[in-house]
Design a protein around this nucleic acid. Structure first.
Length: 331
DNA sequence: GCGGTATTGTGCATTAGTAT
DNA sequence: ATACTAATGCACAATACCGC
């Protein structure tokens, strides 16, 4: 099972890494060009060796909350897209709302990778609630889900399909801090009145570490009220399932595009202008810099497409549109 | 000014390997 | 199986540069 080091007969390399490194020396030009491409772009992480999401019976399906106050949270980035936490706030001026995302002054804003923890929380809660609803249909009363989750760290990392490297344990603490302090404020204006609200991605959290060893023994994350109410107290929660391969997407921009496609295209297709995607990505880059970035980002998808969606770059004169087409199982 | 590419720094992510 | 270490890799963004 763990013999991942299968030698490649063709070129005397021990491992896949050897093969990648030696692509210059490879005689077969076709193979060499493929390997060069692999070297250049890595859209997907390799899944951890033990490629199981959870060792429990069934992992909860990956779900994300899609709207809040009739505002779609999936087609804007309520987090930074980079690995480095960002400190500048993001502002969105949408048609019917003004949205402001701001991180903590010390730790910065949550990143799209920190958001994985949020997804774990949503998935857990949705799954739990679906189970309870089934029980109620059968006529059995049941307790509502708890208002906080207590995952073991390994369980959390497994679900997010990450490696169990110790680094992840250290970073978890920072991730939680960012998630908890990132505030999203929505100001909605309709014809009659103006509503303003502020919420964060996760509530309070506790991390218990053992004194002698410094090991994390326990984490508790409280579920913020808007999430709990949105899933438990509303009859038809606005949640969408995602493909678990989402966790393997290595580029923040790819994750953003996948979320956008999932929401906008669904099981059909959708087209956005490049300008609109630029605005909704929350990037700090000037447009023409971002444009060349996103162009190569989308070009990389030719080799390794997004799970279930194809993204294409279409030019109409000077205008650029991004077309997203569902390629998954149309059932 | 506007388009594009090339280079570089930073902080997180990943990997192999190790300890319990 | 879970938790940790050290070394390396990577994306994003800032910056410089070039040609128009």
């Amino acid at each position: 099972m763990t013999d991942t080091k299968q030698p490649y007969v063709s070129d005397n390399c021990e491992t896949y890494t050897d093969l990648e490194d030696s692509h210059e020396k490879i005689k077969n030009p076709e193979l060499a060009s493929i390997l060069k491409k692999v070297n250049r772009s890595r859209n997907y992480r390799k899944p951890p060796i033990d490629n199981k999401q959870l060792d429990i019976f069934e992992p909860p399906p990956l779900t994300d909350i899609s709207t809040k106050d009739e505002i779609s949270l999936m087609d804007i980035a309520v987090f930074g897209l980079g690995r480095k936490p960002r400190f500048e706030p993001i502002e969105y001026n949408l048609k019917d709302a003004h949205i402001m995302v701001q991180g903590g002054t010390n730790c910065g804003m949550a990143t799209i990778f920190d958001y994985d923890i949020f997804l774990y929380m949503i998935s857990y809660l949705t799954n739990e609630m679906n189970r309870i609803k089934k029980e109620i249909k059968k006529g059995n009363d049941d307790y509502l889900p708890p208002r906080s989750i207590k995952p073991s760290v390994a369980e959390l990392l497994n679900y997010c399909r990450r490696d169990h490297g110790g680094e992840n344990y250290k970073l978890l603490e920072k991730s939680l801090e960012r998630l908890s302090t990132t505030k999203i404020s929505i100001t909605k204006v309709n014809s009659k009145n103006r509503r303003n609200g502020m919420f964060s991605l996760i509530g309070d959290y506790n991390i218990t570490t053992q004194k002698e060893t410094g090991r994390i023994s326990d984490i508790t994350i409280s579920i913020p009220e808007w999430v709990y109410d949105g899933i438990v107290r509303i009859e038809n929660p606005t949640v969408l399932t995602l493909n678990p391969d989402y966790f393997l997407l290595d580029k923040g921009a790819h994750r953003f595009l996948h979320r956008l496609a999932r929401k906008a295209a669904g099981k059909t297709e959708a087209t956005y202008s490049l300008e609109k995607i630029y605005e909704r990505s929350g990037t700090t880059r000037v447009f023409r810099r971002w444009k060349s970035d996103i162009k190569s980002t989308i070009a990389a998808l030719k080799e390794n497409p997004l799970p279930e969606y194809s993204i294409s770059w279409e030019t109409k004169g000077k205008k650029v549109n991004i077309k997203m087409i569902y390629t998954g199982n149309k059932k």
